[in-house]
Nucleic acid binder design. Sequence first.
DNA 1: CATGAATGAGAATTCATTCAT
DNA 2: TATGAATGAATTCTCATTCAT
Lengths: 230, 230, 230, 230
Amino acid sequence: MKKDSAEQHEIEQWMEELLAIGGDKQMTPKQISILEAAVEIFSDKGFSAASTSEIAQKAGVAEGTIFRYYKTKKDLLLSIVGPTMSRMIAPFVMRNFNGVLDMPFESYEAFLRAFILNRLEFARNNFKIIRILIQEIPFQPILRKHFSENILNQVLERVTAITEHFKAKGEIIEAPTPAIIRFTVSSVIGYLVTRLLLMPEKDWNDEEEINLILSFMLHGIGGPGQQAEQ
Amino acid sequence: MKKDSAEQHEIEQWMEELLAIGGDKQMTPKQISILEAAVEIFSDKGFSAASTSEIAQKAGVAEGTIFRYYKTKKDLLLSIVGPTMSRMIAPFVMRNFNGVLDMPFESYEAFLRAFILNRLEFARNNFKIIRILIQEIPFQPILRKHFSENILNQVLERVTAITEHFKAKGEIIEAPTPAIIRFTVSSVIGYLVTRLLLMPEKDWNDEEEINLILSFMLHGIGGPGQQAEQ
Amino acid sequence: MKKDSAEQHEIEQWMEELLAIGGDKQMTPKQISILEAAVEIFSDKGFSAASTSEIAQKAGVAEGTIFRYYKTKKDLLLSIVGPTMSRMIAPFVMRNFNGVLDMPFESYEAFLRAFILNRLEFARNNFKIIRILIQEIPFQPILRKHFSENILNQVLERVTAITEHFKAKGEIIEAPTPAIIRFTVSSVIGYLVTRLLLMPEKDWNDEEEINLILSFMLHGIGGPGQQAEQ
Amino acid sequence: MKKDSAEQHEIEQWMEELLAIGGDKQMTPKQISILEAAVEIFSDKGFSAASTSEIAQKAGVAEGTIFRYYKTKKDLLLSIVGPTMSRMIAPFVMRNFNGVLDMPFESYEAFLRAFILNRLEFARNNFKIIRILIQEIPFQPILRKHFSENILNQVLERVTAITEHFKAKGEIIEAPTPAIIRFTVSSVIGYLVTRLLLMPEKDWNDEEEINLILSFMLHGIGGPGQQAEQ
DNA sequence: CATGAATGAGAATTCATTCAT
DNA sequence: TATGAATGAATTCTCATTCAT
């Protein structure tokens, strides 16, 4: 549809703007293959169980070469998950001039739909790195700190603004914002996890599934016969 | 091949573990302190980064003693997460005599409420072990296999039955059961994760929060002003 | 001679008292052979150029065994040179009750003679360790600190007292004590170095040489024809 | 055998170095800064613990550049200490035409005074290199060999001649020349070491100290009350 | 049962040296 | 001539596991 494609374009612009992170600038082929091998192996065995010698072998370089680019094994890890961590939250880090939410969506539903699709695409493209990130956050204090201070807080702040924007417009019920956010985010992440991690091989119809989720979120799953409780 | 026989060994051990559910039978004090120390350290640093000598030290036993009880470090891990894994799904593994759902709840809401409270309690009591379990499932093929074959499938089957039970009673809308389950489970797990992992220090009013979640699930978060879409 | 042997005995007692350092208590045979091998190799190649694998090989133990006893290679070094460093200055660390010098020697010459012989013996028995010590003091801040704070200062203080004791008795000329000490110590160490390090294979007559040194020190090497200067 | 040919190479290089005494001929600025950096770092950490990459960095050149000028790290060391080693003994390598000692000093005292001042100056100017030299002589066979064969012997021979010259003139007592030399050299080196190494920060009055040393050497430190021994 | 000394395979990391540019 | 990326052997150190006591 015209509208959709125009909207899509706007969203893409709106999102890509903030993605100018690092830019993978001037990496040698060796460095690239080191990174690729590291992503593969960290993702397969976890950071601790991965060995630099295995990474070197898979990357087709000498073990010493890894340490020319990354001082330590942990540096290698951080250089992999760091940028992706930032890009994960790119859509949330938008400018918000003079108190006005720069929100190019007509409805909450449209916003969520676009958002889910966009992050699904991102998660698909960065699947392994995100896996590494999630696995290692509990064990790498530096990641945990960065995650809670930068990521979590920024996202929460932004999402709160968005939610209240739509609450003000009457599209969302009057209920505690944190609970609404948790509910929404859980539903979205629940889908992403099932889709990509638990049952990746299933033949998914994303559009349909997202419609269902949105419908559940907005109208609930309560049927006509549900008991009047409390 | 060596690998096969090793794997065979793993499986045998594993099966024995599963039979020991709830048992903790005839454990010496040393064995108990080994397990406690192992839980602590596996949970803190992850399986690979934990060292048996540190566990021994924390448990107050000699290094060799661990290997009297558990042939390998991995055996120690499995003996910890195995039983808990089974107990995680205990509520789902109820008898279901002669095709009749033995479901002692009047409403879906009552069922969910009871269920969430029950699993919240369980998760609180087994927090560290569950963390270990979640961390290690991706890296321990034997765990992954058991999880997907036994846990996931059993739970899914059971949850499907329950869901359809309430669907038949009109308490849940007519929509694809898998999507409903995903939606429900996501909401519940989302709460548990936030409650126990992301913001454990916050002062939670569980009853209230659960009421909100149930309300969201059943009636949605759509407000009066929401646009008619589709 | 009777006198000499009695004196000798007194001196030995006087010196051994303070040597109760550590005592090489309960070392396993493996630990002993590790230490022996380490002394040998550190002495031959220097600390940095010595490899733990070579030490392990020479000691006849696995490389890991070294690290059971000594956390790091540097620990191994310190555990070797530390005690010897203390024993080097043992003769200087005598009790000095109520301001009275406990000095069981009739003359300065007798004192010096006994002292030189005693330290020559000590240096001969601890030759390699002393070599390591001297080599590594410039590069190991911890050694340097200990040396300057504990060793040098203690010895200087004590030697100053001794020197002034004999100066008061008129056996030593009135001249700045530091210069006298430097002169004396240089002569002694110069002999030890030549004797043990530069020309160890020469057939030395220690008694005669020491007599010469003492004579030089006390009466100088100026001949009858020396010019009246200044 | 490999070792032999390597040794052969060492020796050849070494000889070339020796010929370059005082030369510093046609050194590029890069080469000079390499040498300066190497002196600094070898002196600070010792030869083995110094890394060529650190030297390159301090010198402001690429790692590879060092190896354009010096085949190996050891070559670099030798090219530093070699010339200085030779210059250390320069005053002893004087022409000695037709058996006549070309000794332009009236008295032994005047000679020693001039000599000490001269070598003190030299040592001050070449402090770091001399430190390296002394540190490395025990570990570099080639240095040790050269030192004992060329330096030590030449110096000894020359010093013996000088000493006997003054003995003949009656300025030095009749005593075994080696002992006299040892005594003299010890006193001088003892002063240099204290002056430059042990207490460099002290405010020294060199002239006065040297006078004291000379006085001690020539007349001894024995006071009027010294016991007549033997 | 329990110990803990001993092992040796392998881990991360360093570094002198080479070589294509 | 100078560079610096690349190497791979060597180094320090860790750790699961064994076994004699």
